[in-house]
Design a protein around this nucleic acid. Structure first.
Lengths: 335, 335
DNA sequence: CGTCAGACGGCAAACGGTTGCCATGTGTTG
DNA sequence: CAACACATGGCAACCGTTTGCCGTCTGACG
């Protein structure tokens, strides 16, 4: 049962293939009556255009690739979901690529897919900025949760978020914080540390950084131990997974959160509201980030703009029970 | 910077395009020396075959689509991850489709993608069995976590798992369980209920079913209330999300888990080990399920077999603190 | 009534590969 | 040494669209 082609339709409708083609992709180019007729015949024959034949000549695949640094991280799910929905809404297909935290795999996959997709969403890319710029010279790219001057990007706001986070800790009476950093080549990790350090300076807190740590629950043990050696009363983990790992280790060591030490994370993953104690974290509409990234990509295909947009999606500090007044025996819920 | 084609390579190497083509896709067909030379030239020119041109004639796209009923459900992440990795390992690309729990969207998307992918992984499909069979007549399909006679499938074992679950509850002293069912058109929901009911009969427990409920945390409230009306001392939720919602609602109503009622779920999602109390659940290697599904799909392309394999991946009952002896004031951890 | 501008439809050349078939050269066999 | 099989490379058709260009027809205009 070979499915029908434009030829079949053309023959059945008694017109040329070009007319059939145009009836679909350029409706104004054919007379209304002809168009109706062609479409009717096409429907009857169950005609479905072959995307490859189409892509071959038009050089548009109606497909975008999203490459994430680690598909295992629940934080990406929302991002992926937003991107998938937005893509689908425009009749685009989303292909998913897991870079497994490896810049090499990331590049390999991008290379492999260049000819099959119209553009790339690079989420939390681990590439050096110059490599990204070079990539963007040959491909349509928008980076997600990373800012690279000259590239289109959408990030969840975090500078101000970090400030609020530190201010929150300061208002509880903390006077020193430790940032448990993410991977060395993570732009986010660097950016957050800069913001935390600046906020701490401004508000008169001591700030230190430990790490880097893999952004996983498993790394939380080492991170917790490292945090304790600093004597800080509050630990800001690179993300919620790490924070949850920290909570676990602290519980194991008999250290009370938040009485002995406060813990905060980033991302507001689903589990942040379930762990014990529940986790104070910087959340935001991740799905919107994914959505916006696809949108920017699609727009850039319609009219290639000179200026690469840099979108910032607002974040929100979510206070839960993992932060409190230091040194009090009963944890106290702020505000 | 138009990237180089097979023609460029052929010219630069002083051979015909067919030779270049074969050097890649059918190496034995060209002499060793020529092949080396061609590959060398290709490398130098940065030649990258165009997948669409290739697909157009060979009718193979090296792409598989995974359609999941709800991309939001963390349970699918592992599945997706396993599938992505297996696909990548064979040089295949995974496209992700979210059916948003709607059989209509599911069909639409499948239809839209037929020509762009080599096959479909249908995870927790909501289609009626006959529709799936019809689909499979035209497309290469393997259903995941669903069994349809005549179709290739891989499911996480759950019949025996349900039996163990009920036996576990029986051994704690429960004498009646309620199954909080998943969506009406979910094969899994039906299958689990059958297994639970059979096991209960065998072990002399009363079993009831309530629902259907959407498999989300939000539905847990209604599910919990429904469970309580039955008087059952143990509730088996359709999945962990629902179970977590149930736990929440029970806590709000001041009902103690597991003293007053035991709760168990399915999937062993990450959060199951974080909620309060931690959740007893039927887990398993979901990534293996995804991996196996892709593998079956790829194999079926190499040699179309007459018999559709039906793989069952072992599951594992994970005991945590949400199950215990009923009516005891102190929760007791079994075994 | 001659001209001319659209509007509309068709022809045919791409797009970048794959593959069946044929031609040639080489080694093997009787 | 003739006959033949096989290894190797090239030719050209084909996959299913899109699209630039051209021809024709129609209606409007002067």
């Amino acid at each position: 049962m070979r499915s029908s082609t434009i030829y079949d339709v053309a023959q059945a409708a008694g017109v040329a293939t070009s007319t059939v083609s145009r009836a679909f992709s350029n409706p104004d180019r054919v007379g209304a009556a002809t168009r109706e007729h062609v479409l009717e015949v096409a429907r009857r024959l169950g005609y479905q255009p072959n995307p490859h034949a189409r892509a071959l000549v038009s050089r548009r695949t109606r497909t975008v690739a999203m490459v994430v640094s680690d598909i295992t991280n629940p934080h990406f799910f929302e991002l992926i979901r937003g991107a998938e929905m937005r893509a689908k809404a425009s009749g685009y297909t989303l292909v998913l690529v897991n870079a497994e935290e490896s810049p090499r795999i990331e590049l390999e996959q991008i290379h492999r897919l260049t000819r099959s997709v119209d553009g790339f969403l690079l989420a939390a890319s681990r590439q050096p900025a110059e490599d990204l710029l070079q990539l963007a010279a040959g491909h349509r790219v928008v980076v997600v949760n990373r800012r690279v001057p000259g590239l289109a990007s959408v990030v969840l706001e975090h500078a101000e978020g970090c400030r609020q986070m530190v201010a929150h800790l300061a208002s509880l009476g903390h006077d020193s914080v430790v940032y448990l950093a993410g991977p060395r080549n993570s732009w986010m990790a660097a950016s957050r540390w800069a913001a935390i350090r600046a906020a701490a300076a401004e508000l008169g807190l001591r700030a230190q950084r430990m790490g880097p740590f893999a952004p996983t629950v498993a790394s939380g043990g080492a991170a917790a131990d490292a945090a304790l050696t600093t004597g800080a009363t509050a630990a800001i983990a690179h993300n919620d997974l790490l924070a949850i790992g920290v909570l676990r280790r602290l519980a194991d060591r008999g250290i009370q959160v938040p009485q002995d030490v406060s813990v905060v994370g980033f991302d507001d993953i689903f589990a942040a509201d379930l762990c014990t104690p529940t986790l104070t974290t910087l959340g935001g509409a991740h799905a919107d980030v994914g959505r916006a990234a696809v949108e920017i990509l699609l727009n850039s295909m319609e009219q290639p703009r000179d200026h690469a947009p840099e979108l910032v999606v607002p974040s929100e500090l979510i206070l839960r029970r993992s932060t409190g007044v230091p040194g009090r025996s009963r944890g106290q819920r702020p505000a």
